[in-house]
């Protein structure tokens, strides 16, 4: 990947702490955080205005959950790269999100290094 080519990251998680953690942990030079959303509906609104290329997506959220949001985002932009970040209670749900078009899964809790490595792979995928 060309370092000059900037990837636009949107963070979707209903936990404020988790959103901040992801925002602060991500330290890739070619990734720029374009916004954060607290649920699926907000994520769709934000997508319309800031056109992210990368997304970190929580699964259980109020109003619109992660799976539906993944489906809608991929419907709007088939090239969008989505990393599902969730606690691994139910593998089947994570697999469903991947079937809907997400590219990878990162298990909570995670370290800064794990997040950055996952983002690098997300860009590769």
């Amino acid at each position: 990947m060309n370092a000059a080519c900037t990837h636009r990251l949107m963070i979707v998680d209903d936990s404020n702490i988790m959103r901040r953690k992801i925002e602060r942990s991500q330290e890739l030079p070619n990734v720029e955080v374009v916004g954060t959303a607290g649920n699926g509906r907000e994520a769709l609104e934000l997508h319309a205005t800031s056109r992210p290329t990368l997304v970190t997506m929580d699964l259980t959220m109020p109003e619109m959950d992660g799976i539906e949001c993944v489906e809608q985002l991929v419907g709007r932009d088939p090239d969008i790269r989505i990393l599902v970040i969730s606690a691994l209670a139910d593998k089947a749900t994570a697999i469903e999100a991947l079937e809907k078009g997400a590219s990878g899964f990162l298990c909570k809790p995670f370290t800064e290094r794990q997040l950055n490595e996952a983002l690098v792979k997300l860009i590769e995928s």
């Binding site: 790269r81 990393l83 079937e99 997400a102 990878g104 792979k121 997300l122």
Partner: peptide, 19 residues
């Protein structure tokens, strides 16, 4: 379902190990 994910080009194989 999991094994079939590996045929999806968009999915990164290293990023689905945990599921």
């Amino acid at each position: 379902k999991f094994v079939n994910l590996l045929w999806k080009e968009k999915v990164h194989e290293d990023l689905i190990d945990t599921v």
